[in-house]
Amino acid sequence: MNLGIFCGVGLFAFTGLILLGDDAQAEDQDIHLLSLQVENDLFFGDTDQDYTNGIRLAYVHHPGEKRLGAGINGFLRKNLPLARSGKNVDVYYSLALGQNMYTPEDISRSDLIVNDRPYAGWSYLEFGVTAQGRNDFELLKLDVGLVGPASGAGFTQRQWHHLIGADQPNGWAHQLPNEPGLNLHYARGRRFVIDRVGSERWSFDVTPHFGAALGNVYTYGAVGATLRVGTDLNRELGAPPRIQPSLPGSDYFSGEGFDFYLFAGGEARYVVRNIFLDGTWRSHEHDVAKENAVLDLQVGAVFFWQDWRLAVTHVFRTKDHEFADGGHEYGSITLSHRF
Score class of each variant (00 low, 15 high):
residue 244 Q to V: 05
residue 270 Y to A: 10
residue 200 E to Q: 14
residue 300 G to K: 07
residue 267 E to A: 10
residue 264 A to R: 06
residue 42 L to F: 08
residue 268 A to D: 01
residue 227 L to D: 00
residue 215 G to F: 07
residue 86 G to E: 02
residue 240 P to C: 02
residue 177 P to A: 09
residue 217 V to E: 10
residue 274 N to F: 01
residue 20 L to R: 03
residue 211 G to E: 02
residue 308 W to V: 00
residue 154 G to A: 08
residue 14 F to C: 00
residue 318 T to Q: 07
residue 339 F to W: 13
residue 333 I to W: 01
residue 31 I to L: 07
residue 60 V to I: 12
residue 273 R to L: 10
residue 250 S to L: 04
residue 58 A to E: 14
residue 222 A to Y: 01
residue 132 Q to T: 11
residue 189 G to I: 08
residue 92 Y to C: 04
residue 156 T to R: 04
residue 321 H to V: 02
residue 103 T to S: 13
residue 15 T to V: 08
residue 110 S to E: 15
residue 171 G to M: 06
residue 241 P to I: 03
residue 276 F to R: 06
residue 214 L to V: 14
residue 116 D to R: 10
residue 128 G to I: 06
residue 132 Q to A: 09
residue 10 G to F: 03
residue 175 Q to M: 12
residue 335 L to E: 01
residue 45 G to E: 14
residue 297 L to N: 10
residue 28 D to Y: 04
residue 101 M to I: 14
residue 166 A to P: 07
residue 67 R to A: 15
residue 292 N to L: 01
residue 59 Y to A: 11
residue 58 A to W: 07
residue 263 F to T: 02
residue 50 D to H: 09
residue 135 N to Q: 09
residue 261 Y to K: 03
residue 198 G to W: 09
residue 51 Y to H: 09
residue 287 D to V: 00
residue 52 T to W: 06
residue 281 W to K: 11
residue 201 R to G: 02
residue 279 G to Y: 04
residue 288 V to W: 04
residue 230 G to C: 07
residue 17 L to G: 10
residue 306 Q to K: 14
residue 19 L to Q: 12
residue 16 G to E: 09
residue 270 Y to F: 06
residue 37 Q to E: 12
residue 18 I to V: 11
residue 22 D to L: 09
residue 5 I to T: 15
residue 85 S to W: 04
residue 157 Q to F: 02
residue 279 G to E: 05
residue 317 R to K: 12
residue 336 S to L: 04
residue 112 L to S: 11
residue 38 V to P: 00
residue 200 E to N: 12
residue 174 H to W: 14
residue 47 T to V: 12
residue 75 F to R: 04
residue 35 S to Y: 05
residue 84 R to P: 00
residue 79 N to H: 14
residue 108 S to Y: 09
residue 58 A to T: 15
residue 165 G to V: 07
residue 76 L to G: 01
residue 113 I to V: 15
residue 76 L to R: 01
residue 51 Y to M: 08
residue 31 I to Q: 11
residue 268 A to Y: 13
residue 295 L to S: 05
residue 14 F to E: 05
residue 238 G to P: 06
residue 199 S to A: 10
residue 87 K to R: 13
residue 332 S to W: 06
residue 26 A to L: 08
residue 160 W to L: 12
residue 129 V to K: 03
residue 314 H to N: 10
residue 138 E to D: 01
residue 228 R to K: 11
residue 34 L to M: 11
residue 280 T to L: 09
residue 314 H to Q: 10
residue 53 N to D: 08
residue 143 D to K: 10
residue 167 D to P: 12
residue 156 T to L: 14
residue 253 F to Y: 15
residue 165 G to P: 05
residue 69 G to P: 00
residue 251 D to K: 03
residue 139 L to M: 13
residue 170 N to R: 11
residue 19 L to E: 13
residue 279 G to P: 05
residue 112 L to M: 09
residue 154 G to S: 01
residue 217 V to A: 13
residue 84 R to H: 10
residue 57 L to C: 01
residue 259 D to M: 00
residue 193 V to H: 03
residue 250 S to F: 06
residue 216 N to S: 07
residue 74 G to R: 15
residue 333 I to S: 01
residue 79 N to C: 03
residue 338 R to T: 06
residue 292 N to S: 15
residue 54 G to R: 08
residue 37 Q to S: 11
residue 50 D to F: 13
residue 280 T to M: 03
